[in-house]
């Protein structure tokens, strides 16, 4: 039996769990190829116009799955207590059924960690019935999956190589250190983000959300008066907040996509903090029309600005007129 796993959206965070899970059940998992022109076009044509780029890509990846017995589209309602994923995750698979190639059934399961592990297991066992697996097999597979996922998180994805970017640069203190924050499915989606991560790594040392310890993220969330209720946003805000306070970090780039609802809130909160702390901060908004030249120009301008700021230490003569007299970012 072959299960088709689209290489989009939840793939970047939770694939190890599902890989371990299905591996234990002796089910082969086939992923769609990395995003390419054709997949993107398929997605744009089929997905609803209003939805965001990552979901359009998911639609393309679903259509790119060939010769599989099932298309696997889990409904990841929640991945930890007290949080949700994005509402668009909750609408999977129904909102994407039209993308599934005719004749291939959809395998789905509702994963809701808000209700605790027992019910997650129960939901998985219901799915197991469809696959003809016993409850005990599912339980063991679940633990196997968790083991894989834990290892993945501990090694920060080193062995999984989702984004071929683990190039090690010699530690030069001269090089700028830039933090790139945003959803994993944008930062590691190198086709859609026009290879931003690689481009950035060529010019500077890069810190990602995944590089921050969970404990540090939690402590950086404490100052919020109300808990954020999206798991991804918690990671992004917690890590971003840590980067803001870190004097080693020279600047922060927030990668988002057009129409992202959770980012519209979190980005606003972070940008305000960045302003208060006088940290260089740039937002890059992706959509299907993003052009490479525009991205490179903005990236270079941002890095140049930081470079200059380093030399001048942000001190600008108070005498006379200056161009940025109305800006408080310096």
């Amino acid at each position: 039996m072959k299960i088709g796993f689209p290489r989009a959206l939840f793939y970047f965070d939770f694939f190890p769990f599902w890989a371990g899970f299905f591996h234990h059940l002796n089910i082969e998992v086939v992923t769609s190829p990395p995003t390419n022109r054709q997949i993107m076009d398929l997605g744009l044509k089929n997905a609803s116009d209003e939805t965001c780029l990552p979901l359009k890509l998911l639609s393309g990846h679903i259509q790119a799955l060939k010769a599989v017995d099932w298309v696997f589209l889990p409904r990841m309602v929640s991945v930890e207590a007290e949080t949700y994923t994005c509402p668009k995750f909750l609408g999977i698979p129904e909102s994407l059924l039209s993308s599934v190639p005719t004749g291939i059934p959809v395998l789905s399961v509702t994963l809701n960690w808000r209700k605790g592990q027992r019910l997650v297991l129960k939901d998985l066992q219901t799915m197991g019935e469809t696959l003809g697996k016993s409850k005990i097999e599912i339980k063991q597979a679940f633990y196997e999956g968790q083991k894989w996922q834990e290892k993945f998180q501990k090694t920060r994805g080193a062995e999984w190589n989702f984004a071929p970017t683990n190039l090690e640069w010699p530690p030069e203190p001269e090089r700028l250190k830039i933090a790139l924050v945003g959803h994993s499915y944008l930062i590691q989606e190198s086709y859609a983000n026009l290879n931003l991560l690689k481009k950035l790594r060529e010019k500077a040392r890069v810190e990602l959300v995944q590089h921050v310890d969970q404990i540090e993220i939690e402590t950086n969330l404490l100052e919020l008066r109300k808990k954020l209720f999206w798991s991804h946003s918690k990671q992004i805000y917690g890590a971003g907040n840590k980067f803001l306070a870190d004097p080693e970090i020279d600047g922060i780039i927030y990668l988002t996509c057009f129409g992202c609802g959770t980012d519209s809130i979190v980005q606003e909160l972070l940008s305000r903090k960045a302003r208060q702390r006088h940290k260089p901060y740039m937002v890059i908004t992706l959509d299907e029309h993003s052009g490479e030249a525009g991205l490179i120009t903005r990236l270079e301008a941002f890095l140049d600005m930081i470079e200059r700021r380093r030399v001048h230490e942000g001190y600008v003569s108070t005498h006379g007129e200056r161009l940025d007299c109305n800006s408080n970012t310096l």
Binding site: A47, S48, E50, T51, C86, P87, K88, L90, G91, E94, S95, L96, L97, S98, G259, C260, G261, T262, S264
Partner: peptide
Amino acid sequence: PLSCMPEIVAASVLPK
């Protein structure tokens, strides 16, 4: 409203 997340999901189900 533009970019409303829950309604986008609903909108993609309504054609059915």
